[in-house]
Amino acid sequence: MAYWYNVDTKQVESDDTRSQNAEVMGPYETEAEAAAALATARANTEAWDEQDRKDREWESGDAGA
């Protein structure tokens, strides 16, 4: 069974209870993963932003400076 995080209601939903046309994130394998959806998304975004910063430094020749 898949789980979803509903951004509107801030609730975890299963395939059986998932709102139609709702703003949901997922699917996740567990309820706990779905409940942590916003924190996971935030951490991923921060990691990607940091990698982008490093890539820009490398491309501009500032890496290791």
Rank of each mutant, 00 (worst) to 15 (best):
A2G: 08
Y3S: 06
Y3A: 07
N6Q: 06
V7E: 10
D8M: 06
D8P: 14
D8V: 06
T9F: 13
T9V: 09
K10V: 05
Q11E: 15
Q11D: 15
V12L: 05
V12R: 00
V12M: 02
E13V: 10
E13I: 09
S14Q: 06
S14Y: 06
D16C: 06
T17D: 13
T17K: 08
R18T: 12
R18P: 08
S19A: 15
N21T: 12
A22M: 06
E23Y: 09
E23T: 10
V24L: 02
V24N: 04
V24A: 12
M25P: 14
G26R: 02
P27E: 15
P27Q: 14
Y28F: 15
Y28Q: 11
E29V: 15
T30G: 07
E31W: 08
A32N: 15
A35Y: 04
A35D: 15
A36M: 09
A36S: 14
A36L: 07
A37Y: 04
A37W: 04
A39E: 12
T40H: 10
T40A: 05
A41R: 07
A41Y: 04
R42S: 04
A43F: 02
N44R: 06
N44E: 08
T45D: 14
A47P: 10
D49C: 03
E50D: 05
E50N: 01
D52A: 06
D55C: 10
R56G: 07
R56N: 09
W58I: 01
E59Y: 11
E59K: 12
S60F: 01
G61F: 00
G61E: 07
D62H: 01
A63L: 02
A63D: 02
A65L: 06
